[in-house]
Computed example of a mutant assay.
Amino acid sequence: MVSETVPSQCQHSEFGLIARYFTPSPPGPDAGVALGVGDDCTLLVPAVGRQLAVSVDTSVAGVHYPEDAPADAVGHRALAVSLSDLAAMGARARWCLMALTLAEADEAWLEGFSRGFRALAEVSGAALVGGDVTRGATAIGVTVMGEVAFDAALTRHGGRPGDLIAVTGALGGGAGGLALWQRGERDLAHPLLVRYLRPQPRLAAGEALVGLASAAIDVSDGLLADLGHVLERSGVGASLDPEALPLADGLVEALGEEGARQAALTGGDDYELLVTLPAEHFEEARARLAALGLPLTLIGHLEAEPGLRGVAAPGSAGWQHFLAEGAEGEGGQA
């Protein structure tokens, strides 16, 4: 954990910032942490018979979230978008690392950011076990690690013709919340702003779907774009019923009927799970998620013929950083 010292009015060194804001309580005996924050590396102990699932995401101010977003929401969101990848694999969250780059060390911002990050880390079971703090343009890199039983992980390539397509929760809230924020809405209790600023990674749902779903992906770049990844990896086509899409609360009121439907199809930042599963597994899957207080909605089915039917093909492959155009999503413009 060595990096350039971050200057601040309070003369905090990098190590002082880590000690004050990002050093958790000593891990318990079941945390799987042999050595945590404070050394060159952390030493982790995966459970016997489990595979490690590892993912990393970077959040950049003004690109992935608004520069004036509340600090605690930024902390929550930075971790949530990475945890969502674990959810899509059906993995249980265990540990996380964070690399934080700041232009300056603002104590009030750091206090809020660390509070939001650590609150979600505690709830999700992802212990913060190391990281880095340095000076530069504000960016947050979060690596998450989870565990899943051997040969049980959900992937993008397991879909088969005849499988049903379903989504957890509701869609369009991320895009709707971003649109409201850009219009000047600052009521942080608004359901769309909650969906955009504080997305909830569907970790419990992902675990519940292991053994039932044939393929899965989290909806970060938009439903059509992410479904396209599953279709490509699985070598199948699909038919969707756009009228079946579950719309986020307040979305129609904010964007109108047509705008809401478009947000659900192509808007990003929802972090719901898109899954395919054999028809005989659907009712059990829905019951398992209902026990978690989360709906599972049938929106289509896979077909042998390549391509997408029932809706217009997406105009792009979702947000891509090095192309001039793209759908708002995990990398969507804030």
Rank of each mutant, 00 (worst) to 15 (best):
M1G: 09
E4H: 10
T5Q: 14
T5D: 15
Q9C: 09
Q9W: 13
H12L: 15
H12T: 10
S13A: 11
E14Q: 14
R20I: 09
P26F: 05
P29V: 15
G32T: 03
V33T: 08
A34D: 11
A34K: 10
G36N: 09
G36P: 15
G38E: 03
G38P: 08
D40Q: 13
C41Y: 10
T42F: 07
T42Y: 05
L44G: 07
G49V: 02
R50N: 12
V54M: 12
D57K: 11
T58W: 08
Y65W: 10
D68A: 06
A69L: 03
P70S: 02
V74S: 05
H76G: 07
L79S: 01
L83Y: 01
L86V: 00
A87Y: 04
A87Q: 05
A88N: 04
A91L: 00
R92I: 13
R92L: 11
A93I: 03
L97H: 13
T101G: 07
L102E: 04
A108F: 14
A108H: 12
E111N: 10
G112D: 01
F113W: 06
R115M: 11
G116P: 14
L120R: 04
A121C: 06
V123C: 08
G125R: 01
G125N: 02
A126H: 07
L128D: 10
L128W: 13
L128M: 10
V133P: 00
T134H: 09
A137V: 12
A137G: 07
A137H: 15
G141K: 09
T143A: 15
V144M: 08
G146H: 02
E147H: 01
A149G: 10
A149Y: 13
D151E: 14
D151F: 10
R156P: 08
H157N: 14
G158E: 13
R160F: 15
A166D: 08
V167L: 03
A170Q: 13
L171D: 07
G173P: 01
G174L: 01
G177I: 03
R183C: 08
D187V: 08
A189W: 15
P191Q: 02
P191A: 00
L193T: 02
Y196G: 05
L197T: 06
P199C: 01
Q200S: 12
Q200P: 00
Q200F: 09
P201M: 02
A205G: 05
A205K: 05
G206Q: 04
E207W: 01
E207R: 05
L212Y: 05
V219R: 00
S220N: 01
L224T: 05
L227P: 05
V230W: 07
S239F: 14
P242T: 05
P246R: 02
L247P: 06
D249F: 11
L251P: 04
G256V: 01
G256I: 00
G259P: 13
R261I: 11
Q262Y: 15
A263K: 02
T266W: 07
G267N: 02
D269Y: 07
E272T: 00
L274D: 03
P278F: 06
E280Q: 11
E280G: 13
E283L: 13
R286N: 01
R288W: 03
L289S: 06
L289D: 09
A290N: 12
L292T: 02
L296C: 06
T297S: 11
L298S: 11
L302V: 13
L302S: 05
G307M: 04
R309Q: 13
A312I: 13
A313R: 14
A313W: 15
P314T: 02
S316Q: 12
A317M: 10
E330W: 07
